[in-house]
Design a binder for these strands. Structure first.
Lengths: 216, 216
DNA sequence: GAAAAAAGTTGAACTCGTTCATCTTTATAG
DNA sequence: CTATAAAGATGAACGAGTTCAACTTTTTTC
């Protein structure tokens, strides 16, 4: 049976994290002070720092939970993607986007992104970057699946291509959370517009480009 | 003739900015306190805030100077790009990258990027975003030039494409500044690898369709 | 079961960005 | 040239994240 100390520790950490999720979402990351979290979790300020290195750490922890969910949902799509390059890509992408605001506000995303860049070598930033990498990997995996299915041209490197596509998705999402007025609708439409020509270019022999031979 | 007050004002602002450029670069953005800048510029802390709204404002001001230079250099390339889609794109891109660390440290870039995301609706963030947009526009402009020259396929929208390419460049640069050990060499190589297939896909009928070179 | 050790909690104190009431300097008016 | 107004400089005070030496609680030892 687990010791008392261990149980208390786990309990405190859970209380702090729960307080964070609730309060960050309700009042915004910046508006919530460590003191507020400590109060809600019934611990002292010092104790909060015993469980999380910085305020940003607490935010990353809440964001990480969200991203894990998104990754799980994405895995299902990669396992059995819809027919067609465009539809398959959009299914995965929109899965990401549609979940993004379920538990997190735009302000929380902005702060987390800022943290991951600014404090990139800290456990904070590293953890966030790893999640990003796993998302990128999923896009790559999808392309590999599509390629093995014969949906994607054979002379392309799915890893490089997946990276480019993910970088674009990521940046579009950054723009989305930067603009408090931007709608998910708008984001989806913009990305669909972008993926349309890309899908066509990489899809297996769907079109016949002009046969004018020029140098590269 | 300019009044004494006006001259003093301009002089003070210049001193503060100069102190910022020097000290940020020497000791890092975070390590430098407003008090340090004030001391170096021979003004009081309050006066610094009379000229710049926040510490971040000062950083943006220094970054903006750098980006303006990069934009000017880029304009020359767009006006007369090298032959070939790949070479033209790389000339522009590498122009950006190679200038990036001339006056700014990676840490300064990270902080500026973080600011532009986190404080995206403030004058700070807006100014940085505008610079970003102008860079993206340059990529688009280059594609338009290439298209009018007949180097790029006719059935593609250069604006959308330019956006996708720029988003990728941007994200690659973010990864670059996030990793203190990453070299410009490495960045250039990675981006060249990405642009190679893209250039080929969008170039006017150059591709060799499915010659089947397996590379699992 | 008492005492020592280990682990964890606590909140006052510290740092640094930011603000604001007060004071100084420059410009204008009489 | 003095007096009044306008503009700007100043640094003490404030707020919030973070640290740390002292204190409590749990575990181990004998």
């Amino acid at each position: 049976m687990t010791g008392l100390r261990e149980r208390q520790k786990a309990d405190r950490e859970k209380r702090i994290l729960k307080a964070a999720v609730t309060k960050f979402r309700a009042h915004g990351y910046h508006a919530v002070r460590i003191e507020d979290l400590a109060g809600a979790a019934d611990v002292s300020v010092g104790t909060v720092y015993n469980y999380y290195r910085t305020k940003g750490d607490i935010l990353i922890a809440t964001v990480a939970m969200e991203v894990e969910e998104v990754l799980a949902a994405g895995a299902d799509i990669v396992a059995a993607p819809p027919a067609g390059v465009h539809d398959a890509l959009c299914a995965l992408i929109f899965g990401y986007y549609d979940h993004s605001l379920e538990y997190l506000s735009k302000e929380m995303w902005r702060s987390a992104m800022a943290l991951s860049i600014e404090a990139s070598e800290t456990p904070n930033g590293i953890r966030y970057s790893e999640l990003d990498q796993r998302l990128a990997l999923q896009v790559t995996d999808l392309l590999l699946t599509l390629k093995s299915r014969g949906d994607v041209r054979d002379d392309l490197d799915p890893v490089t291509l997946g990276q480019v596509i993910f970088n674009n998705l990521n940046q579009m999402f950054v723009e989305f959370v930067k603009d408090e007025k931007a709608s998910l609708q708008g984001l989806r439409a913009a990305v669909e517009r972008q993926m349309q020509p890309i899908s066509q270019l990489i899809a297996c022999g769907t079109e016949a480009p002009s046969t004018d031979k020029r140098q590269n």
